[in-house]
Amino acid sequence: KFTDIFEKMVPMLVQQSLSIASSRKADLVSRLVGSLREATNLCNGVLASLNLPAAIEDLSGDSVPQSILEKSRAVIQQGGLNSIEQLIKDLPELLQRNREILDESLKILNDEETTDNELRAKFNQRWNRTPSGDLYKPLRAEGANFRNILDKAVQADQVVKERYNTHCEMIALLCKPESELCSAIPSANPAKTLQGSEVVNVLKAQLMQLDEIKRDREALEVEVKAVTFDMTTKFLTALAQDGAINEEALTTGELDTRYGAYTQRVQKNLRSQEDILAQIQTSHQEFAALKQSNADANNREEVLKKLASAHDSYIEISSNLREGTKFYNDLTEILLKFQNKCSDIVFARKTEREELLKELQQS
């Protein structure tokens, strides 16, 4: 029943190459997924600005268009304003906890250095160990990096807060029950004459195509994220054969093989969206011309657009808050490890100090 516990052990160079390869893969996936999500945001933004699909659903002029009702339900189902308010309230505490761990870690280094310097001043050359200041440089550099990261996080918190402040009113409205939502949206003259008109049908068809393109993106994202591969064998082989690893060449070759087809599908998807959005904008112009807008209709449309945007903002803010919460929690784990490193080294220095003091007293 022998299992080789050193099976996964590889030469240092292979380990480093694997780490870099992993970074490259993460970057590529991040870029691909990023462009997919960007395309969806763009698409949602364009539709909201055109008041689609609400405008072609809204033929009574006073009931809540179906798509807006669906958006309302979606937001309510995800916890509405309360859930994001709670997460926003928690952020400063999470930040503070992280700050405290970092401050505490650097403080114990500072305190030990102070004592070490006092003893060096007292005993001069006889206190012949490396000064704490020199020894702690790497840890302090790490600490400075952490401060940097926390500063960036604080800025991110601000962005989220501002997004929330900008949109919370409309999000609150979107979360209201249907009857309240209905009364809050200005009425307009019904556009019944447009029902069944050619341009409405064309728009409907185009919107359905766009939906399919969006669904393709969701599937693509899942597939892209599911790709796994292991460069270990390739790197070990290269090292054995050449005595060196051309990591960049090997990794980019493998990434092309694994992700090439996906990259093309993403490009194709983005182009399809570009095309259909252009078509939708043209159709919408026709539609708007037919609609005979007046002040009432324009007011109604403005509110519907804002409600659609509020849904998109809610999704974005929720995502930001999940990211922020995870960030602070992950950082806490990392900072606790850092704190351990600091207390370990300080403990060793204290022990060494006691021994040195004993020697000096004896001599």
């Binding site: 780490s19 970074s23 993460a26 990261i149 960036k152 996080a153 991110a156 962005v159 989220v160 930001n320 990211e323 922020g324 960030f327 992950d330 950082l331 990392i334």
Partner: peptide, 16 residues
């Protein structure tokens, strides 16, 4: 993404 990446920091560095 809005927040800084912690990926680099998660990798355990070899302690000398």
């Amino acid at each position: 993404s809005l927040y800084p990446s912690l990926e680099d920091l998660k990798v355990d560095k070899v302690m000398r």
